[in-house]
Design a protein around this nucleic acid. Sequence first.
DNA 1: CAAGATATCTATGCGGCGTTAAGATAAAGT
DNA 2: ACTTTATCTTAACGCCGCATAGATATCTTG
Lengths: 207, 207
Amino acid sequence: MSDIPATDARRYHHGDLSRALIDAARRLLEAEGQSALSLRAVAREAGVSPAAPYHHFKDKGELLDAVAQEGWTLLDAALVKAKAEAPDIHQALTELGVAYVCFARDNPALYRVMYDTAREKEALPERMQNGEDNSYSKVRDVLIEAGGDPNDSLDLELATSAAWCSAHGLAEMAGFKQFDHLKDACGGETAFFRAIFNHMGLAPRRR
Amino acid sequence: MSDIPATDARRYHHGDLSRALIDAARRLLEAEGQSALSLRAVAREAGVSPAAPYHHFKDKGELLDAVAQEGWTLLDAALVKAKAEAPDIHQALTELGVAYVCFARDNPALYRVMYDTAREKEALPERMQNGEDNSYSKVRDVLIEAGGDPNDSLDLELATSAAWCSAHGLAEMAGFKQFDHLKDACGGETAFFRAIFNHMGLAPRRR
DNA sequence: CAAGATATCTATGCGGCGTTAAGATAAAGT
DNA sequence: ACTTTATCTTAACGCCGCATAGATATCTTG
């Protein structure tokens, strides 16, 4: 899924330690999971002393913020791709949802860091606010193209939020063993995702 | 929301330390939040030495399991109450959802522990499996009463799972500041919850 | 009731954590 | 060349989860 560069330069002044730390963190996250992501372990992985990160990040939380940022960017890219590849506009919303859940499945630890840091500040990143050309707007635009009323902004926002909540809910649940037999019965994991989304009749009021 | 008894008995042999530890953990969780919930802090709160808990729980995880267990029981009770109070069967599903989200809002740290421990073992508690007279079945039964086909068990399970995912998704998101203005626009928090659930047209195939 | 067995708790210690403070070293500015 | 500044290291503090060994209270059996 990812190619996080390994760091090599081992001179005293590193060159770009913040970058190297973020990469190290993502490498650790992918290889060992969230519980292994200590600041000291990140420093070790990057080949510096335990205190070195503090010259680039105020504390551990700020490093995690940076990691989460990259996560949101990756998720955004996955949604762009999904929309572009959707066969028609009425399936586009489901395909966005499937792409979302697949991202969470393929980057479980990163996905967790993204929402953990968001919960810490009780706010999703700006990218997720109602705005132009961000992740949130991608879902909203699909809803409009599929027949939503662009003038009923409250209803549109509710529909967009509902879609996001649904996708997040499924993303968090899909990993549980309870659903294994349903995945089989549906004929595969993504078929299961689609079936679940079909049961959540996500739509705005019509124009 | 809760009445977690404070422990007093301070004799050498405590009497019921496991009980006292669980209560202490829940008290800490409510007062200080999840990050303050260390095993040592729980022992302090219960008035025993840091190593005492190990005679009643294998490790910290097992204590959290016990706390989570109580959480699921409380959630179950909230759902029973919501179903009993629902005006008619077609609103019952939404009311279950609202009750679910309100539980998460009122017990944020506990709710988090519940899902964190579940994720650790990649499985929700048995209570959540397809079965008789558990939390899962409460949602499923409402879907049947509302017109779902009791014989199409795959579809029923998908619909039940979809409802649960949606509720969980909203529960996790509702705390974010992003939604404050929507809550206002809807005329209150629970009205917002209802509006979101309305946009997720949760239903099984008809009989 | 006495005495040994058992359950429960304390004391101590290990390594790892996040974070801070003080000192070393390399690069940049004058 | 010399100073200044940015960057990194070393060392230390108080927390943490957890393991071990020893103390103390209750239970069991005579």
